[in-house]
Design a protein around this nucleic acid. Structure first.
Length: 482
RNA sequence: GUAGAUAUAGCUCAGCUGGUUAGAGCGUCGGAUUGUGAUUCCGAAGGUCGUGGGUUCGAGCCCCAUUAUUUACCCCA
């Protein structure tokens, strides 16, 4: 007999796990809706042409592709057989063969399908368009801690506005969800692509811009020495690296860091148009040039005006780079402290997400929660409130088929009153029926024995306390309706 | 893709330098208690030791291959 198994990186979720996951989904959904986001669902399958090229070369490799149906090797029409995959294709390798045998793939994230949806429905949408989406995504990654091949993302994005209020609201939503889940020790990191660009310019534009961002993003992971080594290997000079750490080393709270970084840029001679900018500059060009710093300051002001109180958990982190994808403005990342887990949420602004779908110039900003990682964090921090394995609130016990049948009207009545109830299906020993209730965490047990039925009453036991009461049959439903 | 670790009962794991019939805890089932759970006591079922080769008088243990799982790197939620 073959041992059953499931594909690598996928999981089954038992009743207790689903209940806990539903709790997480519920907190996130309520938060998104409170902020005016409307639900959207898109298909599991997308055309590969929609997905490829959006996540970089590495991302393309991690796409799950779906083999075309039917005979994907040849095309047969009126008895004439044309090969779809030719010998030349095979010689040219997988890249030539793939588009001929697979034209669909599993969604890799929720942002690209969303962009596709916006581009397809541009005529009917009212902008700014705010949507949230909670669906599984698939990545052909090697599974590891906190990394699965099938996992849920919960995205909220708004497109069609450049208002920084959206950025501020993302921080508010992040905090609301984390607080709602009982997570307290977390850090919301925020940065801006413009700040990163300024840093690059402060270094005199030396070396590869992307190499620089990738390296400094790892600062908290491999440390200053590790980053130095990596940058030296990439051809950056030592004085440049010293300048970099002087900039990244700015300390203080959110506002202080912004100010000190501005001073750092000015002294490093970063200037937009040959005119040396100053921290107090009113010059419009300078304002545009220092868009990153200015926008971060604006987001902070908006948060303050919104009554946001948790600035101790909001950190301006100039080393945050978040990959190299489509982000162009503010970027966010959330880390749960004291848990060995990658970020549980991330996002940012993208100026031209729908451009590749023929709808240029639409700015959007959004972020995503990783439900599976949140689950793992909550579990390792022991933050799940005890939930039973079953929604059943009351179990009806009985002694024989006849008594079981006599219990059916009461069962129907309980259910009609909205009380989740079940009747033990077999006329087993009472001991066994009680064990069942205990194992499943059913809080109440009704005993409907011959004595009770004869007297027209039911005995009810509260499992937690062991307390027992006798109720008239007619009172049972009212007694259980709280 | 690169590197390491692991694979023994449903689960978590013991198993000595290779030596008779491979063990424990938990769980499951049955009983003590024919009308009362979580505590207690007794009993039972359950394993071709991941798979295939090799070495040996003899392999759960040593060697090779293979598959699966897992950790780190890369990248990410």
């Amino acid at each position: 007999m073959e041992k059953p198994s499931i594909p690598q990186g996928t999981r089954d979720f038992g009743p207790a796990q689903v209940a806990r996951r539903q709790h997480i989904f519920g907190v996130i959904r309520r938060t998104f809706e409170t902020f005016g986001y409307a639900p959207l669902e898109t298909p599991t399958l997308e055309n590969l042409s929609v997905l490829t090229g959006k996540y970089g070369d590495e991302g393309d490799q991690l796409l799950f592709k779906v083999l075309n149906s039917g005979n994907f090797l040849v095309k047969e029409r009126r008895g004439e057989i044309t090969p779809l995959v030719t010998a030349e294709d095979l010689d040219a390798g997988p890249k030539a063969v793939l588009p001929k045998i697979a034209e669909k793939g599993l969604r890799y994230d929720l942002t690209v399908p969303f962009a596709r949806y916006v581009a397809m429905n541009r005529g009917t949408l009212t902008f700014p368009f705010k949507r949230y989406q909670m669906q599984p995504v698939w990545r052909a990654d090697k599974p590891q801690r906190g990394r699965y091949r099938e996992f849920y993302q919960c995205d909220a994005d708004v497109v069609g506005t450049t208002s920084l209020l959206c950025e501020a609201e993302i921080v508010l939503m992040m905090a609301q969800v984390l607080n709602g889940l009982g997570l307290e020790d977390y850090t919301i990191k925020i940065n801006h692509r413009g700040v990163l660009r300024n840093i690059y310019q402060a270094l005199g534009g030396e070396g590869q811009e992307t190499d620089l961002f990738v390296a400094i993003d790892k600062l908290d992971k491999i440390g200053r020495d590790g980053v130095s080594r990596e940058l030296l290997a990439k051809g950056f000079s030592e004085p440049t690296i010293d300048t970099l750490f002087a900039l990244l080393g700015v300390e203080g709270d959110y506002a202080e860091k912004l100010e000190r970084l501005m001073v750092g840029f000015v002294t490093a001679g970063v200037e937009p148009d040959g005119l040396r900018p100053t921290a107090e500059s009113e010059d419009d060009d300078d304002a545009a040039f220092y868009r990153g710093l200015n926008e971060l300051a604006e987001v902070r002001d908006l948060l303050q005006a919104s009554g946001f109180k948790q600035f101790d958990r909001l950190e301006f982190d100039p080393t945050l780079a978040r990959g190299l994808s489509y982000y162009t403005g503010c970027i966010f990342e959330v880390k749960i402290n004291n848990v060995a887990m990658g970020s549980v949420s991330g996002g940012g602004r993208y100026d031209n997400l729908t451009g590749s779908f023929g709808l240029p110039g639409v700015s959007g900003v959004g972020f995503s929660f990783g439900v599976d990682r949140l689950y793992d964090c909550l579990e390792s921090l022991n933050l799940f409130t005890e939930t039973g394995e079953t929604p059943t609130r009351v179990l009806l016990t009985h002694f024989n088929a006849e008594a079981g049948r006599a219990a059916l009207p009461l069962l129907a009545e309980l259910r009609a009153a909205g009380i989740p109830a079940e009747l033990y299906p077999d006329p087993s020993k009472l001991q066994k029926q009680f064990k069942y209730a205990d194992a499943k965490g059913i809080p109440l047990v009704l005993v409907l024995g011959p004595e009770e039925l004869a007297a027209g009453v039911a005995k009810i036991k509260i499992m937690k306390t062991g307390e027992e009461k006798t109720l008239a049959m007619s009172e049972v439903v009212t007694a259980l309706t709280v």
